[in-house]
Amino acid sequence: MSLLFALAAAVLFGTGAYLLLDRDLVRVVFGVVLVSQAAVLTLVASGLTRGAAPIYPLSRGPVSDPLSQAMALTAIVIGLAVTALLLVLVLRVVQAYRSEELAEVAVREAEREARLERLHEREHAEEEAAAR
């Protein structure tokens, strides 16, 4: 069973990594979701014992490891928070730069920064002139 769990988690992680490398920012977010799912699956699978749910009254057989489940829960919630924030961030970037292509965003940002720098230099020069 552990082989199958590892295989599934590896597929999730591999596809997630593939998406992380994409140039489309939205697909990068998909990649983050996949990688975090892989992490949660690994956490749940790494329980030392498997069996009935760890809820009282306990069944007589083996009981699932509650600790790894608690950690998986934390991971899921934080994954949700991160994904939502990332997605909205991507939305704002796309709206600001009118492109979801990473390369184009970088080029536009460089242009904008250069423009700001020139503006700043001009202001600085004016200030110095005024000081004299």
Binding site: F5, A10, G14, T15, L21, A45, S46
Partner: peptide
């Protein structure tokens, strides 16, 4: 990208399987 993703997946597989099959 596919090659890198596959490499990442393979290494994750090796690591996770190793971890899962060796409970303390």
């Amino acid at each position: 990208n596919a090659v890198i993703g596959a490499a990442a997946g393979a290494s994750a597989f090796a690591a996770i399987w190793g971890a899962l099959s060796r409970p303390t």
